[in-house]
Each structure stands twice: as C-alpha cells, then as structure tokens.
C-alpha cells in the first residue's frame, strides 16, 4: 500500500519556507554553508541553496557529505555500502553548517553526519534541515527546519524522489 504525501507543488512550497526560515534564523547567509548528506540530501541541499540565493541574491557554499564510514550498522545491514564522494568546498571552521537530508527517522544518520563533519573542521554551530520528519527518534536529535512532519508506523517506508534524479518530484509513504 503506498500513498502520495507531497506532490511537486507541496515540495517546492516546503523548500521555499525552509529557505526563508534558514535566512531568518541566521540573520542572512554571511557565515552559512549547506551540506547535503549522501545520497538523499544532496539534491535537496542544492535546491535549498538555489532558493536561498534567489531570495538573498547572493552566493552560498554547498557541500556533500558521505557518512558511510561513520555508520554504526556495518555488520547488521544486508547490503554492502557503496562509498560516495565527500566534497566540502570551504573551510567549515567557525561557520554555521546546515546539514540537509531528505528524511529524518531514527537520527542515526544525523549522528554519523555530525561525526563526519567534525572530522573536517570545527563549525561554530550545526543545524539540521529535513524535508520529512517521520518520528521514531532513537537519539536526542531534532530538526531545526522540517518541510513536513508525518507520523508513520516504524515499518513504513518514505520514498522521496526529486526530478533532478530522474522522475518527477514526489514523496510517497509505503506502509510496511
């Protein structure tokens, strides 16, 4: 059983709102850097950056972060991880880094992402932006910016697709 949660318009609205919130909270983009978590967060970070640049009429650095080596489930996953690129375009020391991911679930990926990020430098602070917050946190982590909160059952799956990656924008809930 699958159910559409957000369509293209919903997604764009959510991204626009998050862009405003990020600018607002950080009082501009002067000391800001976005980092998308491989692999769902990368496209989202780019879109969020375009939106912010449009609003602020300025440039914002966007990086990508692979957290494979920082995961805590190496032995428990049935598939072997495929390593992707990490590219942090600027020195993140004393910057405000907004980590971007598509779905926030147990919080373990975010924990890994923070560990990974800290190995690249010492940001002044780290914030978190996600498109979907589906609950079921296992760690004390919360999103600073969330596109939409969607209560789910633990076994359900959320599939986020963005048109940059092939098909059209959609968020679908597949019940487990």
């Amino acid at each position: 059983m699958s159910k559409s949660i957000l369509d293209s318009n919903d997604i764009n609205r959510a991204i626009r709102r998050m862009a405003y919130e990020i600018i607002e909270k950080n009082k501009g983009i002067g000391n800001l850097c976005l980092v998308g978590i491989q692999k769902g967060g990368v496209t989202l970070a780019n879109r969020l950056a375009s939106q912010i640049e449009l609003i602020e009429n300025g440039h914002i650095e966007v990086g990508t972060l692979d957290i494979t080596f920082y995961r805590d489930d190496l032995n428990t996953k049935s598939e072997q991880p495929v390593v992707k690129r990490t590219e942090i375009p600027c020195n993140i020391d004393d910057k405000t880094v907004v980590l971007v991911d598509d779905v926030l679930f147990t919080g373990r990926s975010i924990r890994a992402a923070m560990d990974a990020l800290i190995d690249y430098g010492r940001p002044a602070n780290i914030q978190l932006a996600v498109l979907i917050d589906r609950g079921h946190r296992e760690l004390p982590i919360r999103a600073d910016y969330a596109g939409k909160n969607i209560p789910t059952s633990f076994d359900a799956r959320i599939e986020v697709t963005l048109e940059e990656n092939g098909s059209s924008d959609s968020v679908i809930l597949v019940s487990g």
Binding site: V83, K84, R85, T86, D115
Partner: peptide, 15 residues
C-alpha cells in the same frame, strides 16, 4: 573513498 580520508587532516574514521 579512503584515499580521500587519507588526504584530510584527520585521517581516521570509526567504522
């Protein structure tokens, strides 16, 4: 991926 890690200042990862 590990070659990239080895190029960083902090050359250690936790897996």
């Amino acid at each position: 991926g590990f070659k990239d890690v080895l190029m960083r200042d902090i050359k250690k990862v936790p897996p």
